[in-house]
Design a protein around this nucleic acid. Sequence first.
DNA 1: ATGTTC
Length: 484
Amino acid sequence: MGTNIPLERIDDNRWLIPQRYNDAMRVPGMVYADDELIQTILSDNALQQVANVASLPGIVGHSLGMPDIHWGYGFPVGGVAATDAETGVVSPGGIGFDINCGVRLLATDLHYDQVKGKVAELADRLFDNLPSGVGTDGMRQLTEQEMHDVMVQGARWAVDEGYGFAEDIDMTEEQGCLEGADPSAVSKHAIQRGRKQLGSLGSGNHFCEIQMVDHIYNQEAADAMGIGRKGQIVATLHCGSRGMGHQVAEDYIKLAEAKQEDFGFHLVDRQLACLPLDSEEGQAYLGAMKCAANFAWANRQLLMHGVRQSFASVFGRKARPKDLPLVYDVCHNIAKMEEYEIDGEMKRVCVHRKGATRAFPAGHPALPEKYQAIGQPVLIPGDMGRYSFMLVGAPGSMEQSFGSCCHGAGRRMSRTAAKKAVGSKQLLEMLEKKGVTVRVHSKNLLAEEAPQAYKDAQQVVNVVHNAGLASLVVRLRPLIVVKG
DNA sequence: ATGTTC
């Protein structure tokens, strides 16, 4: 049950898995958790996966586990691993099935008092305007040429098509587009799945939430982001690359598994299957992954347009599209080539973030001018009953975690366990009692996302705050949840 | 996460 993993306590927020735990480990593991969270983490095998990841060819630093870590395909969700650009590998399981799953947050000028009488109407509009559910078609059906352009241009394509504004691009990680996307590396099947789904929310833990600013930890940073008033209404989207990214992941996991012998890899878990960064196959995966990432950014751009339209139709001149600026968009399932100081020298590495958010500190050149002084906004959705958080990246992330921190609350119950433990009727009643208005396609699936199925996001963000990876800015309370 | 067992 993972409890035989040796853990050495470093301090109140850090636990080391020593390299001597087994012969396969090339680096130690490091897990971020407090005394209570580490007990939850020990109850599944996620720490064994942290140790497994430490055996990847070319891995440097530590195999990292964030406080929201839980069991995933090969790699844990809530994990970070960096591999040497020259001698290392990329592993599709280290990015995950939902390539560029991410979160974006829009501010509004509205206060809760202006919204409370129109909550049901707004919820209905959002539900109408944001296609959701398993296998649902999106707002746009794309020609093959349009699909090609989406994969290469990302969010920019959507803005050029009239979804949103040029300013949105600057407030998106990587300006909503990874260079080097290679459509020829994407299977026909993945392309066909994508053509139907641009501008759709999907299912599972994906959602649109309307939230209110509930607590302010850092007024200066909150003001810089335009979310510094208590009671202020904001909108959050959590979504990824839908069936398109899923197909890319599946295609390349299969390829990698078939190639392990050829590359001479004998990994401790076949789900760690990986491709050398300097191989044709490794580069093909990265080219295809970038296509899926760009698709996801265009997808969130279309969905954001749907959110702005919904507000405009309910609140008129008080919430025109221009009055709902994008605060920031982060990606939490991706591999990126970045540079870090390791053992005193600068090294180029492939950072795998799987359920982990980039958390660059103030002054980082990748940040827009607007956030140079405060650091990168880090969006951490919690669960639909309690709260979500906005943080900013802190200097410790550059020293400890390859510019990364947690991505959410993290599951404490599997989907099947949650469905067994929670009845959908009681759940809806409980949410209503808490003042959360829910619009959902499948009540059955809602139970899998019950607050009880998740760790306490407050505890999770406290750990990354105290460890110096990111710094708390505001807490948000949910008012409306729209889901598949 | 996912045309949720191609």
